[in-house]
Design a binder for these strands. Structure first.
Lengths: 249, 249
DNA sequence: AGTAAATTTGCAAAAAATTGCAATAGTTTG
DNA sequence: CAAACTATTGCAATTTTTTGCAAATTTACT
């Protein structure tokens, strides 16, 4: 079996199942665990899927684009999106970086909304082409394929000239004591910069990211202005965040 | 067995199977491994299939054309792409802006190519994620939805810091006297800027764009270094361009 | 025809890529 | 915390690619 063929099959499988384990793939394709693992790494570097411990999950941008219009609604995302929209309404310049949640929020924004969105995520920029009244500013820089965003000193510089009202920060983990963190060092620097050029910062977090701790800390929970989750404010998982200065939605 | 015959059979096989290994082909056609390998390389150069380690994979254009019974031998884009690749080979920093032709050229670049591509077209950036050795720099600025590129003074500024070797200029029309032109005023300014930061400028033009005149002139034909078309150099439509300083490919 | 030039073909040796394995290190889960 | 699972690394076997070369074939031209 050709390597390319295998990789194509992996992507197809992911397109339907959204997730696969490496062992499964090995059996399905009749090759060693190592081969599929190496394939998955390669595909992740190209931004075509996301590798997780034990397997891989579909690339969120791609699958969202694919499922768009099919009425496939994700409840958790929808709750967060509703709350996020309330925040946006009063702000005219919104900064949004990478991550599935941000992408989903942007896509679902009302068509009538008149705001400016500044982003380092090309997928988000092209998706917003559907919104006639939203002006989109794309941040330049070197394109980091794995996470499909622009990054680096050029992107940082671009931010110098931005004064945003609200920043939607995508994040990999949030923890009451250890703060908000992300996987890439460069990305953490960028996010800090983004915070500094925005009046207010909000982070929309799905439940699975709570109480985990990723590699590079971006800021403390206290540095956030708003925290949006799909949870009921009384949930016990939210209690440790209650004493903070952040407003929980 | 004639070479043409063999290559035709290879394409047919690919049309039905979507993939073949070279060993398979060698046995099927009863020729040496080397011959089929060389055939496959040639076919790839013509953009008719995708060569991968160990074999070949049908290219989407092939299946499209083949199913319609069209002549697959030489589509206009493929001829242009091949010629464009020759130009790129000796350059390390390539500037490419919007337009279908540029997108197609970028997509078809060899996977082994080690260059940097600077672009204001986010789609091109994400498509190039497939090419592990190509570094992509995305130009920032306000995102112009209609043509799906970034534009404006920020994009212009970004260009100040670029010294490109070769600029692929997408264009809407070309005329021997009236020069190269485009539909948007802002875009024409940007293209002029791009020309100024690149050592050489090349434009790849399909036949339908020749001898038309669009709204905003970017430059004269003489300002171009190379003009790539799918036409035979002796075609009468090209004659008016012959006296110019541009090199016609 | 007949010959020279160009192209094509198959072969062999060396270089490069791919693959599976095993030992080790790291993660997750109950 | 330990057991089970997963990831990483280095390695060796295998397969594929590349390169140069010489024989065979085709093409072009007189």
């Amino acid at each position: 079996m050709l390597k390319e063929e295998r990789q194509q099959l992996i992507l197809e499988k992911l397109g339907t199942d959204k997730k696969v384990t490496l062992v499964e793939l090995g059996q399905l394709l009749n090759v060693s665990y190592d081969s599929v693992r190496r394939d998955v790494i390669e595909l992740e570097d190209r931004g075509l899927l996301k590798k997780v411990h034990g397997g891989a999950i579909a690339n969120s941008y791609l699958s969202m684009k694919a499922s768009r219009g099919l009425g496939i609604a994700n409840n958790e995302f929808n709750i967060i999106t509703k709350k996020a929209q309330k925040l946006i309404e009063n702000h005219s310049i919104v900064l949004m970086d990478g991550g599935t949640t941000n992408f989903y929020i942007a896509e679902q924004l009302p068509k009538s909304l008149e705001i400016t969105v500044v982003t380092n995520n090309p997928h988000l920029a092209t998706a917003l082409a559907e919104h006639p009244k939203i002006e989109v500013i794309l941040l330049g820089g070197s394109f980091y394929k794995r996470y499909q965003i622009t990054l680096g000193s050029k992107t940082m510089q671009d931010l110098e000239h931005i004064n945003a009202d609200l920043y939607f920060m995508g994040i990999n983990s949030i923890h009451p004591q250890k703060g908000l963190a992300i996987r890439q060092y460069e990305e953490s620097l960028l996010k800090q910069k983004m915070m500094s050029v925005a009046k207010k910062t909000v982070s929309c977090v799905i439940e699975e990211k709570m109480n985990r701790v990723e590699n590079y800390k971006v800021c403390d929970v206290d540095d956030l202005d708003y925290l949006v989750t799909s949870l009921n404010p009384n949930e016990k998982i939210l209690q440790p965040f209650k004493g903070k200065s952040v407003e929980i939605l």
